[in-house]
Design a protein around this nucleic acid. Structure first.
Lengths: 219, 219
DNA sequence: AATCATTTCAAACAACTGTTTAATACTGCC
DNA sequence: GGCAGTATTAAACAGTTGTTTGAAATGATT
């Protein structure tokens, strides 16, 4: 029959496979990653991929979901969600949280890298990521911005402000190679990262404050 | 002997090969692109790649340089370089120019895409791109920002402002898949793109204006 | 026209890829 | 112990890849 106990051996193998798959796909990308390397590093036979997940693509899709789950496990709570706090502080917290997630190279950067890869070069699995990871973040940020703009603003302006702030943060992920070479001090150590996130917050708050009148009287 | 006239036949083949290579590498990425497809589309024998460029990697490197050259040919002049203009207008021009380059899907978007691919997933050839394309742009932007901040500013603050503005622009390139799904109106047609670039300029000008006092009296 | 270096070509090569297969080992259940 | 059903394995498969080869074509120079 099927598994009666919770932690049967195959489930361990599947879990190990997913864990390693996230690493390898993140490091090398979908195409360069080989099922053989994944299986070797997971101490599993090559055929396991096709046995448990239908194909390499199937493994990739499930690895993406797994990465997202891990990511939420490590960074479960967004302090910025607390509507009791002043909006300026919420924006600050949001950016800090977001940037830390993006730049955490140690443990969490790995699933994060996989997800950012998927965004840069989307496969069919992108919609999973968008629905589960992107939309909630955007909604939260949009809500904070709306408060900062005085509670009323053109939908288009709102969206563009969301993109302005996300763009400043994401820069650190997708143009990491550039930053490493041209602005290495900006991410040298936790203090510098903290300062960078505070810059983004200050920069954006200043902009929003000045944009506020325009948002209130659009005509 | 070697070619005595300027436009010998092999040079035409080499040029066609480079042109197509840029397209294919941009569309599919280095790994997914096959020398066979490149050669077929260029009406050239498969062996040509190894004959003229040592290897697939050699072709890629030269295609990168070729893409950059083409890019400069199509967008030769940066109106923002004109130091006679007011700095606000220069920033506006810079952003408009930059965003147009990034979003031009028709002709120029192709070499641009190849370059942005190289940034997201660097190979050994990245340093070529950085030296030839990135550093001059950053220097120009930095100079404009410095003027806007009152002629004097902390080097670190300057760099962070450069990143803030570049990040807002680059968002449209590397997170294109997200924008297409969540904010499609922001890039629907030239008018919307124009509006988006104007938003980034307004957003950034507002921020810089407010940051100006802090930059002037750092202590 | 003959000679020479260069270019082009079809074919084959060797390595690697994801996937399948069929045999073997394992596990819980009667 | 024997019998399911599942898991694991080594081996082979079929397809694709970048690259090489050696012969044929080309074209300028003598």
């Amino acid at each position: 029959m099927l598994e009666t106990r919770s932690a049967t051996k195959p489930e361990l193998a599947i879990n190990r496979l997913l864990q390693i798959a996230v690493e390898v796909f993140a490091e090398q990308g979908y195409r360069d990653a080989t099922v053989r390397e994944i299986c070797t590093r997971a101490n599993v036979n090559v055929a396991a991929v096709n046995y448990y997940f239908r194909s390499k693509e199937g493994l990739y899709t499930e690895a993406l979901v797994f990465a997202f789950t891990e990511l939420n496990k490590l960074y479960p709570y967004q302090a910025a969600e607390d509507v009791g706090l002043p909006p300026e502080q919420r924006l600050n917290l949001f950016i800090q949280h977001f940037l830390n997630k993006l730049l955490d190279d140690s443990h969490l950067g790995i699933p994060g890298k996989l997800i950012s890869r998927e965004i840069a070069e989307p496969t069919k699995a992108l919609d999973i990521i968008i629905a589960k990871a992107i939309i909630p973040q955007c909604a939260l940020l949009e809500e904070i911005i709306l408060v900062l703009l005085g509670g009323q603003a053109d939908k288009m302006l709102l969206q563009r402000c969301v993109m302005s702030i996300l763009g400043q943060c994401l820069m650190f992920k997708h143009s990491r190679s550039i930053i490493d070479r041209l602005f290495p001090e900006a991410i040298a150590g936790p203090a510098a990262i903290q300062a960078s996130s505070q810059h983004i917050a200050a920069f954006s708050l200043a902009a929003l404050q000045q944009l506020k009148p325009a948002a209130e009287c659009p005509l």
